[in-house]
Structures are given as structure tokens and as C-alpha cells.
Amino acid sequence: MKNVIVFGASNSKNSINQQLAEYAASKLSDAKITTIDLNDYEMPIYSLDREGASGIPQLAKDFDAMMATADGFIVSFAEYNGVYSTAFKNIFDWVSRVDGNVWKDKPVIFMATSPGERGGITVLEIAAGRMPYHGAMVVGTFSLASFGDNFKDGAIVNDDLNKELTKLVNKFHKELLEA
């Protein structure tokens, strides 16, 4: 059984991106789903000076080790001022110092959602363009605009969007099996 790590790239306790990532993962019937909370990996803000003085935090090493156990990833990015959340960016910066291949050359679905009409598309484009340089084999991306209108009771209620996500998850599943 393939292990898929799932998270919303946010530190919000009520993250809509966490909800979307978990919903996408629920469409995988024969995978072990490991859901993580970025709050469990809170570290000092990355800097070369801090790394030089104190080394790489154990939490960064733990996060990297956990990533190495995955066969694939489903991640939904929160968009803060057009870019990644600080919580994600800080973890990413630290983990990239452990091993520059953060995503371990594994299949990934990148998603984003927001209450607005653009659905986090800017951060999604940034992630899809940047993360392959760190080992992400991007299977595809999915943006869910107007979260409050399109996601209710733990599911996407817009049939077209739900079909689009299901198609992407099926493609991801095929990549997992071939990896």
C-alpha cells in the first residue's frame, strides 16, 4: 500500500487548505494517508547565521525523514499576500538545508483554495514552477475558488470542480502505482 503525505501549507487551526487536501486524499481508496499539521514543525525563522550558530533543528530533520517515507504528496497551499504562508516557507527553508531534494522525486498534487474568486492561483503557479527544482514530480494542480460556495460539509459541491479533482487524483494514483 502506498503512503501519501497530506497537508495544508498553513498554520491555521481551521485551514481551508487542510480541508481541501484531506478531501482530495479521501478519493484514494487504497493508500495509507498520513496527514500532518505544520504546527507540529514550528521552528525559529531560518537564517544562515542561525544555522551556523545552532545547526539544523531536529524538527527539520524529522520533517525530512517523514517526507522520505512517502510515495507521494497532496499539498494545498494557503496564499498569503500572493505567496506561501510563512509557516510553510520556514519549514521548506530549513528542510531544504537537510536535503535539497525536499519532495524526494515523488509524485505530487499541488492545490490551493481561498474564499476569493482566484482560489490561490498565484501561489499555486509559484509552487508548480519552483518545487520541481526541489524534487517535486508535479502530476497536476487544482485551484478551488470561492471556498465557502464550493466546499460544504467536507466536500466539493460543484460537480464540475469535483470531477476535475477526481480526474487529477486518479492520474496521481496511476503515477503512484508506476513509481
Rank of each mutant, 00 (worst) to 15 (best):
Met1Ile: 09
Ile5Ser: 09
Ile5Arg: 08
Ile5Val: 12
Asn11Cys: 13
Ser12Phe: 04
Lys13Thr: 15
Asn14Thr: 15
Ile16Leu: 03
Asn17Cys: 03
Asn17Pro: 03
Asn17Thr: 06
Gln18Tyr: 01
Gln19Val: 01
Leu20Val: 03
Glu22His: 03
Glu22Gln: 11
Tyr23Lys: 08
Lys27Ser: 10
Asp30Lys: 14
Asp30Leu: 07
Ala31Cys: 14
Ile33Arg: 02
Thr35Glu: 02
Ile36Gln: 07
Asp37Trp: 06
Asp37Ala: 05
Asp40Gly: 04
Asp40Cys: 07
Asp40Ile: 06
Asp40Phe: 05
Asp40Ser: 12
Tyr41Asn: 02
Glu42Ser: 15
Ile45Gln: 11
Asp49Pro: 00
Asp49Gln: 12
Arg50Glu: 11
Gly52Ile: 09
Ala53Cys: 10
Ala53His: 13
Ala53Lys: 15
Ser54Cys: 14
Ile56Gln: 00
Gln58Asn: 14
Gln58Val: 14
Gln58Glu: 15
Ala60Glu: 11
Ala60His: 10
Asp62Glu: 12
Asp64Asn: 11
Ala65Gly: 11
Ala65Phe: 07
Met66Ala: 06
Met66Ile: 03
Met66Gln: 14
Met67His: 10
Ala68Gln: 11
Ala68Gly: 08
Thr69Lys: 15
Thr69Trp: 04
Thr69Pro: 05
Phe77Asp: 06
Ala78Ile: 02
Gly82Met: 10
Gly82Thr: 07
Phe88Cys: 06
Phe88Met: 05
Lys89His: 13
Trp94Val: 09
Trp94Pro: 12
Ser96Ala: 13
Val98Arg: 04
Asp99Cys: 08
Gly100Pro: 08
Asn101Thr: 15
Val102Arg: 05
Val102Phe: 14
Pro107Asp: 12
Ile109Asp: 00
Ile109Asn: 00
Ala112Arg: 04
Thr113Arg: 02
Thr113Glu: 05
Pro115Tyr: 08
Pro115Gln: 11
Pro115Gly: 15
Gly116Asp: 12
Gly116Ser: 13
Glu117Pro: 06
Glu117Cys: 02
Glu117Arg: 13
Gly119Leu: 01
Ile121Pro: 00
Glu125Asp: 12
Ala128Cys: 14
Gly129Gln: 11
Gly129Asp: 09
Gly135Lys: 06
Ala136Trp: 00
Val138Asn: 11
Val138Arg: 10
Val139Thr: 15
Gly140Ala: 08
Phe142Met: 02
Ala145Val: 07
Ser146Thr: 12
Gly148Leu: 09
Gly148Glu: 15
Phe151Gln: 01
Phe151Val: 06
Asp153Ser: 13
Asp153Phe: 03
Gly154Asp: 14
Ala155Trp: 05
Asp159Gly: 12
Asn162Arg: 15
Lys163Asn: 11
Leu165Asp: 00
Thr166Leu: 13
Lys167Met: 14
Val169Asp: 03
Val169Ile: 10
Asn170Ala: 15
Lys171Asp: 13
Lys171Cys: 01
Lys171Thr: 12
Phe172Glu: 06
Phe172Met: 07
Lys174Trp: 03
Glu175Lys: 13
Glu175Trp: 05
Leu176Trp: 06
Leu177Cys: 14
